[in-house]
Design a protein around this nucleic acid. Structure first.
Lengths: 208, 208
DNA sequence: AATTGAACTGAACTTGGCTCAAGTTGCGTT
DNA sequence: AACGCAACTTGAGCCAAGTTCAGTTCAATT
């Protein structure tokens, strides 16, 4: 099942694409997508607003790109964390741990991603936006499959009781990502503590 | 701890306020808040766009009102479901069941609410908007306290193992509401099935 | 020096939320 | 029935922010 690719523009040496993405993540993550003016992102990068359109077709196109990149990262992280871990419970713990092993910038990206999941439903008008949307939507399914497969494997090995893996997978994923709604790096609860609690909770949900 | 009230405008017999709210829930829930034109809501109600401003200060004010009403409903439902249920596990099950005992319209309201939680963070410029925001934010805390209290009670009674009730409460809540991201009444999975699975999952998370 | 394509810009356009000043409608009072 | 007031409604137009357009600058290549 080959994924439809969005040709990642290779960075010319003068390209500000990466800088724009970083600035956009900061702005969208802290101020919120709707609340941040597109021109503010331009300012922060140090270019005129219209220069943004050299790199992204629209503000939304930039957002969708951020979301897709984050989904790709999540999937890669999951794969890496579970590769070669045979025991299902260990794999589950490792996967949950990996989900919370993120930098502050990635926390913002997670927040952005989950605050705008609804964008992935309806089709977009312009070509490149729609391409990003489809790619992102596909990655969502890939990530969901990651988790469901993990559960299916555990169930068939007898490590987890038999349940609707699809539904349970979605629930576990929901439990994990719900944290990004409220977690703030500056807040009172360290991420490690959250990670441990959720990890245990996931094991109880799945393996008991 | 008296809640700050938003004086609910009593419906004059000619008032279209309720109709607007219903139409807005339909539009915002199906098309998304940003994607739906304020004027479309007016059309659906059968009034001119500017008439909307007789009832709501802005499109966002309407959204915030919908969110607050939904939060109030959730809190009331929780209270009703857990009143007089002594056994903590029973109370937990009852509360979860109540959370999924909703009409199709209420599903939309849930979706709207959780898709725009981030709105409750930053302050608003206009008076009435800000009033709704503060009221909603307070209700979020009330609902969170509902669940934490339930856990605290269960823990102190020895029915639940001792854990960080705050964190666990937020997680359980996250697990429950994550469903509204993807659930569609027209979808393949009936809400009753989801409710049962999540109910059991919550019990495992909290009571084991 | 001329060429090329990526990077960039100022000015103008578009859309959609919102304001304003001026009406209309219908209920309670006389 | 007529009046008055508050509730309600509207058309015309404003404004902010995203977007388009028609070009200009820059750096590397020939």
């Amino acid at each position: 099942m080959a994924a439809s690719f969005v040709e990642e523009p290779e960075a010319g040496p003068r390209s500000k694409r990466a800088a724009i993405l970083t600035a956009a993540v900061d702005c969208f993550g802290e101020t919120g997508f709707e609340a941040t003016k597109w021109s503010t992102v331009a300012e922060r990068v140090g270019i005129g607003q219209t220069a943004l359109y050299h790199y992204f077709e629209s503000k939304t196109h930039c957002l969708l790109t951020i979301m897709r990149l984050e989904l790709q990262r999540s999937h890669d992280k999951f794969t890496e964390a579970t590769a070669g871990v045979d025991d299902p419970v260990d794999a589950l713990r490792s996967a949950v741990g990996a989900a919370y092993d993120v930098s502050d910038q990635e926390v913002l990206q997670m927040r952005i991603l989950h605050n705008h999941m609804d964008l992935l439903s309806g089709t977009r008008k312009s070509k490149r936006e729609e391409a990003e949307r489809v790619a992102a939507r596909q990655l969502v399914q890939v990530v969901e499959r990651d988790w469901t497969n993990l559960l299916v494997r555990g169930m068939s090995q007898g490590a987890f009781p038999l349940r609707d893996a699809q539904l349970l997978g979605a629930s576990v994923l929901g439990l994990i990502v719900s944290v990004w709604r409220w977690y703030r790096p500056s807040g009172p609860t360290p991420l490690s503590e959250i990670s441990d609690l959720i990890e245990d909770a996931c094991v109880r949900v799945v393996a008991m």
